[in-house]
Nucleic acid binder design. Structure first.
Lengths: 184, 184
DNA sequence: ACAAATTAGTTGCATTATAGAACTTTGATG
DNA sequence: CATCAAAGTTCTATAATGCAACTAATTTGT
């Protein structure tokens, strides 16, 4: 009956969701991005319309995770701002990829609310994509997924979230010619 | 007291979070990706460890949103599979960017659970990044954000989630030389 | 200096979501 | 034809959320 935590699952996505997967987290991060990386408590509350106690809790989660940090606005004062850390600013591809995905499928062309532009050139950014080693954009069908195990890198029949529970039967050896030298 | 819906907020991120922002949604999508795009109910339940009723509900949300679809396994049978739609497969950059973000900050080098490789070359994929119009990777500091309004494209002082509530005072004209011809 | 307002929360209560287990229904299997 | 499995539904307890009211410290206004 306890709310399930993803943090003990052996999966990067599951662990990340424990930090940014809560209802408001990415919207709070969005507000930091459009606000130049720094926001105050009431500012967040006003622009998001979030309850104070929920905001308090989310800010704590994000602070504990190192996504934002709390800084006093003046020496000795008890008035604070929160600001994105380097780790928080590094969430930009996540935020942009979500917005672009939505706009690719749900939005009338040219209707987008928010535009992101290159500061130097003034031009709009391009689409976020998964690149191969040459930087060429890949689709899902162009890729395959493997798992690093104590036995080396493997294909896998079933993918439970906790990979430690896998039996040998679930592991399939990779055809060696599909792996380059860099990875064993 | 009703759980807030993001769908009426004038923000692509907020609207997308209504579909993929729920606790289990992206983990379910992950399971489809590693499972070749197709999964069955009990398969999802076993690998995720999710309750049946929650899974039922999430599958409905994802189906309604067009991310997955339900297909009968044989003609006339009442045994189904769920599979990613094109729109669902298009979530790949979202999933990969989240996993890569987590691994950049939280994982020992070489420890990653899951590897993604180019089917043609066999090599690991590169990092998902936000590109400028030339395809060069941008950081947060290299970018600025604008809003499309009835008055044209604008910089903005405050960014509430519902942009329709903005007053003229919140809107700042863009220096025209920072915009290229393509956008007014 | 003092009163009033603002900021950044905390507390309490009602509602909703989630987890887990037991139960149901239909199609598949021996 | 009996049993099993697959895909849910229903039930109950606990946790999370939303809202409003309250609080304490710090600014701000006069």
């Amino acid at each position: 009956m306890v709310k399930k935590s993803f943090s003990d699952m052996a999966c990067s996505l599951a662990q990340a969701m424990d930090v940014i997967g809560e209802w408001w987290s990415m919207l709070i991060v969005r507000d930091f991005f459009v606000g130049g990386g720094r926001r105050r408590f009431e500012q967040l509350r006003d622009s998001l319309g979030i309850s104070r106690n929920i905001l308090t809790e989310r800010l704590r989660t994000l602070t504990d995770a190192g996504v934002i940090e709390k800084v006093p606005l003046q020496e000795g004062g008890r008035r604070y701002a929160y600001q994105l850390t380097e780790k928080g600013r590094d969430l930009l591809p996540v935020m942009i990829s979500i917005m672009q995905w939505w706009e690719r499928w749900e939005q009338e062309p040219g209707e987008g609310y928010m535009n992101v532009r290159d500061r130097k050139r003034g031009e709009e950014i391009g689409q976020v994509a998964v690149p191969n080693s040459q930087g060429e954009p890949m689709q899902y069908g162009d890729l395959f997924m493997t798992l690093r195990t104590p036995r080396g890198e493997m294909k896998i029949r079933e993918w439970p979230l906790d990979f430690r529970s896998l039996s040998d039967d679930d592991l399939l050896d990779l055809p060696t010619d599909s792996l380059n030298a860099e990875a064993s």
